[in-house]
Structure formats: structure tokens, C-alpha cells
Simulated scan of single mutants.
Amino acid sequence: MTDCGCSKAKAELEEYLHNELASTDAADIREHMSGCTDCSSELHVGLVLTEAVQRACKEVAPEQLRDQVLLSIRTIQATH
């Protein structure tokens, strides 16, 4: 493994977070992240955002709210 450098680590951060890299590329980025404070900070932010989005995608609006939103949409569509 070789240190891939900040440019590559940051450019491929999203793919790294989603396990979309070849194992050698992921290992190079992981190695770089372990020794680079700046990149590991960006990794932390990426992890927090990814987890927040995953949680938000699992949440379901209450049925009453969904019905109200759909009714509002239909009302708007009917008048336009």
C-alpha cells in the first residue's frame, strides 16, 4: 500500500464511504486517513452526514400528514 495523498483521498471520499472502491484503493485511502488529520476530519463529517441521511430515509411521515400533503397537492393541481 502507498499513501494516496490528500487529493485522491478527498476526490474518492464519497465512493470510499459507500464501499464502492476496489479493495486496494480503499486500503490506500484508509491508510492515508489514519495519518492525515485534515482528511480524517472530512471522513468524520462524511460519516455523520451519511448516517443522518440513512436515518432520514427510514423515517415515514404519519399517515394523517401524508393525507394532508396529498390533499394540498391535488387542490393545487385542480386549480392550475
Rank of each mutant, 00 (worst) to 15 (best):
1 M>L: 11
2 T>G: 10
2 T>N: 15
2 T>R: 14
3 D>T: 04
3 D>G: 07
3 D>Q: 12
4 C>Y: 05
4 C>G: 07
5 G>K: 05
6 C>S: 10
9 A>I: 01
10 K>M: 06
14 E>I: 10
15 E>S: 15
16 Y>R: 05
17 L>R: 12
17 L>C: 07
17 L>D: 08
18 H>A: 14
19 N>A: 12
19 N>H: 09
21 L>H: 09
24 T>D: 15
24 T>R: 04
24 T>M: 00
24 T>F: 03
26 A>F: 03
28 D>A: 15
29 I>Q: 08
30 R>V: 01
31 E>H: 10
34 S>H: 11
36 C>E: 06
36 C>G: 06
37 T>Q: 14
38 D>Y: 13
40 S>H: 09
40 S>T: 05
43 L>E: 06
45 V>G: 00
45 V>I: 11
46 G>P: 09
47 L>A: 04
48 V>P: 00
48 V>W: 02
49 L>I: 04
50 T>P: 00
50 T>R: 15
50 T>E: 12
52 A>C: 07
52 A>W: 01
53 V>K: 12
55 R>C: 03
55 R>H: 03
56 A>Y: 08
57 C>W: 01
58 K>Y: 03
58 K>F: 01
60 V>P: 02
61 A>K: 10
61 A>L: 13
63 E>N: 11
64 Q>H: 09
64 Q>C: 04
64 Q>E: 15
67 D>W: 00
67 D>Q: 14
68 Q>D: 14
69 V>C: 13
73 I>R: 07
73 I>S: 14
73 I>Q: 12
74 R>C: 13
75 T>N: 12
76 I>S: 15
76 I>N: 12
77 Q>I: 11
77 Q>C: 12
79 T>I: 10
79 T>Y: 02
